[in-house]
């Protein structure tokens, strides 16, 4: 590989990693607060993408409006899922919520299969995202620039929210101890709803960027990115927002590099994300940014 190829592969990896990161943030936020791995998260990403698709193709909204529309709907869906599926089990054992999350995941996938069929749909790409830049032989598709930038912007906004607002303080308090926080007079349910709303909206954003890059959508599209984002969240230290973003970048870049360096192993690149996950669980179970005790975020 020459220099420009190395740069090209790094660009590819960073842009892919930022998508994993965006989805991973939602995983990590819900886990941080509820100690629940929301396996339906990848499917919320899928639903968000379908909403954006219908926004553009059925309701004829301009692309930016339909993207916001999709994020809002995904946020609502996240809140509804929490209220319907997870809240009644709040005091049940953790494994019950986990199984429920898997159930919700299957429900969403199959509901969309029945409603919209399994044939992939082509996601319409606005002109703004279609082109690419060529800098000295390194090709930068606009989406590949846009995805990491948007990812970092969202992350900064989120960190601001977590560390400098009342709601952020409540979320951090929840991650330490839900019952004590409730005694302190915090409206716990509202804050949990907010966590689901933010996480789900980010998943939708990740899904939309994903479809701008890979414009074929189907009801099962959320499964694999969801699992890899989960691996990214664990890698970064589950419960830590910055860690999730870093974990996403690591998974994305290493997945691309493994193909670049060993083209004959390219078919196993999915396994690689999970191999990383296993190694992290073996040697540093708390992940890169994770703390052993105490608060998350």
């Amino acid at each position: 590989m020459n220099f420009s190829e190395v740069i090209q592969q790094l660009v590819n990896g960073i842009s892919l990693g930022s998508l994993y990161g965006l989805v991973a943030i939602g995983y990590t936020m819900v886990y941080g607060v509820l100690r629940l791995i929301n396996f339906a998260h990848g499917d919320i990403m899928m639903v968000g993408t379908y909403m954006a698709f219908f926004g553009v193709s059925a309701f004829l909204l301009p692309w930016w409006a339909s993207f916001i529309f999709a994020m809002v709907l995904a946020a609502l869906l996240g809140v509804v899922i929490d209220k319907v599926a997870y809240k009644p089990l709040r005091s049940a054992s953790r494994i019950s919520s986990l199984i429920t999350a898997i159930g919700v995941s299957f429900l969403l996938e199959n509901l969309f299969l029945v409603l919209f069929g399994g044939v992939p749909k082509a996601f319409p790409i606005p002109k703004l995202f279609a082109g690419s830049l060529n800098i000295g032989g390194v090709i930068l598709p606009f989406v590949s620039i846009f995805a990491p930038v948007l990812g970092i912007v969202f992350l900064l906004i989120l960190l601001q929210l977590l560390h400098h607002t009342k709601y952020g303080m409540a979320m951090r308090a929840l991650s330490l101890d839900i019952e004590t926080t409730r005694i302190m007079g915090v409206n716990v349910d509202a804050v949990i709803s907010l966590v689901f709303a933010i996480g789900s909206a980010l998943a939708a954003a990740g899904g939309i960027l994903w479809s701008l890059k890979y414009p074929s959508i189907n009801p099962l599209m959320g499964i694999l990115p969801g699992l890899k984002a989960f691996a990214a969240a664990v890698l970064g230290g589950i419960g830590d927002v910055t860690g999730a973003a870093i974990g996403g970048f690591i998974i994305g870049v290493s997945e691309i590099l493994i193909v670049a360096i060993f083209p004959e192993l390219a078919g196993y690149k999915d396994a690689f994300a999970f191999l990383l996950l296993i190694l992290v669980l073996l040697f540093k179970p708390t992940g890169i940014m994770g703390k052993d005790l105490g608060g998350r975020f």
Partner: peptide, 16 residues
């Protein structure tokens, strides 16, 4: 070079 059913990102294979 190789891919797998369900893959969506081929940027690395393309560079190869």
């Amino acid at each position: 070079t190789f891919i797998q059913t369900g893959d969506q990102d081929f940027s690395a294979q393309i560079a190869v």
